[in-house]
């Protein structure tokens, strides 16, 4: 049984069709990387799965529990959408931490408002997560006092604070320099080792190859190629994939 089943997702903005019939599945504990050029629909796909956009067509199921089905007549209520979102965590490209709250408060805000647990337990879990991303000394710092890499690590911890079944990353290192990128990739690798189910939209090809169980290459709103990372990245079958990866392959041989 797949933890995530995505079938026939379509999404248009006005006349531009951004997603054309996207389907894939993900097993529990797997890491999926989505690669592709800018404008290929990767981010829109992630946003549809997190209900930041509503897909025009298709079906999304988590653990055989249907979250979204365009053929169903029942309209999604705001409450159902919120419930759906709690299956997932999302880490943004530009962190989106809450600037007026400390690191610890960024983690505890949502669990407290959603009354997930008692305050002591929420605080304890938040502190454990801060420790896990190596920022225990920064628990009482404000986001503006942190580096980009530290902010992104807080954002990962914040997404984990609600115990999501699947964690999504939308280009988590694109706003960071190469040195800071390393610390984020290390945290994600750590989570992969713990068998956290993750979907990562990324431009870091070497990282995608090393960390993922499965890679999807998207172009023009369709999945061009998918499979094991060594197949898709090292030995692409489609011309479009080969072209996209040519620069990466060149660098590797140097």
């Amino acid at each position: 049984m797949s933890i995530l089943e995505v079938s026939n997702i379509r999404k248009s903005f006005g006349k531009t069709e951004v997603l054309k019939d996207i389907s894939f599945t993900l097993e529990k504990g797997e890491v999926l990387s989505i690669i592709g050029s800018s404008g290929s629909g990767k981010t829109t796909l992630l946003r549809c799965l997190n209900f930041l956009e509503t897909a025009d067509c298709g079906r999304i199921a988590v653990d055989d529990n249907v979250l979204f089905d365009s053929s169903s007549k029942i309209k999604l209520t705001d409450e159902k959408v919120r419930e759906n979102r709690l299956n997932f965590g999302l880490v943004f490209q530009n962190f989106n931490l809450f600037p007026q709250y400390t690191v610890l408060q960024n983690l505890t805000l949502a669990p407290t408002l959603l009354k997930k647990d008692n305050i002591a337990a929420i605080n304890q879990r938040a502190f454990e997560l801060i420790k896990k991303v190596g920022l225990e000394e920064k628990a009482d710092a404000y986001p503006c006092q942190l580096s980009g890499g530290q902010q992104q690590r807080v954002a990962i911890a914040r997404a984990l604070a609600l115990n999501p079944k699947i964690l999504f990353f939308d280009e988590p290192t694109s706003a960071l320099d190469p040195e800071l990128t390393g610390e984020i990739l290390k945290v994600i690798k750590g989570l992969a080792a713990e068998k956290m189910t993750m979907v990562i939209v990324t431009h870091e090809m070497a990282f995608a190859r090393d960390v993922s169980d499965k890679v999807i290459f998207m172009d023009g709103g369709v999945i061009v190629e998918q499979g094991k990372p060594e197949d898709v990245i090292n030995n692409p079958q489609q011309e479009r994939t080969r072209h996209f990866l040519s620069r990466f392959q060149e660098n590797k041989t140097i």
Binding site: F51, L52, R85, F92, N96, L97, A159, L162
Partner: peptide, 11 residues
Amino acid sequence: GQHEAGYVLGL
């Protein structure tokens, strides 16, 4: 992004 960060946390 501030609104969206709140949305994905189920608020």
